[in-house]
Simulated scan of single mutants.
Amino acid sequence: MTKIFTHDDLIRYVYEETEPEENRQIELALSEDMELLEQYHELLWLKKQMDGGMMAPSEKTINTILEYSKAVNLHPVKE
């Protein structure tokens, strides 16, 4: 009997957070359930999109943080 897997199970599988036995069960379920396979491919695509996202803050964000830090002046620098 094939176990029923949830969306959360697939997310854990995509991020390699499942155990080897669970991997085998998920892979079997993916080979038998086209809807589950479609969800899996969608999660892979979403992960790829998120991994390729912004890796550093914009110049505007950095300047805003620096300006705020100067205005609050919680920890003055001793010269």
Results as ranks from 00 to 15, higher is better:
K47N: 10
N63D: 11
T18H: 06
D9V: 02
P20L: 01
E27T: 04
E67N: 15
M54F: 02
E22W: 08
E35V: 12
A56T: 14
I11R: 03
I26T: 01
K70L: 06
Q25V: 07
K47L: 07
D51S: 14
E21Q: 09
E27Y: 05
A56K: 13
E67L: 11
P76A: 00
A71D: 13
E21F: 08
D33G: 06
I65V: 15
K70E: 08
Q39N: 10
Y13Q: 03
M54T: 14
L74T: 09
T61D: 09
K48Y: 09
L30V: 03
G53I: 01
M50E: 14
E19F: 06
H41C: 08
L37H: 11
L44W: 01
S31L: 05
L30M: 06
E17F: 02
K60R: 14
T61R: 06
H41G: 01
V14D: 02
A29G: 05
M34G: 13
D9I: 05
I65R: 04
Q49A: 11
E22F: 04
E38M: 13
I65Y: 09
M34Y: 04
V77N: 02
N23E: 11
G52N: 15
K48G: 13
K60S: 11
H7Q: 11
S58E: 13
E17Q: 15
K3N: 13
V72Q: 01
G52A: 08
K70V: 04
K60G: 10
K78I: 02
T61C: 07
D8V: 07
L28I: 14
Q39T: 15
K70I: 01
T18N: 00
N63Q: 13
N23V: 12
E32I: 08
Y13D: 00
A29E: 05
T6Y: 00
E16P: 04
E19C: 04
Y15M: 11
T2Y: 05
K48P: 01
K78S: 04
P76T: 06
E19K: 07
Q49W: 03
Q49G: 10
V72K: 07
R12Y: 00
L66C: 07
H41T: 09
L74W: 14
Y68V: 08
E21C: 03
N63T: 10
A56Q: 15
D8Y: 11
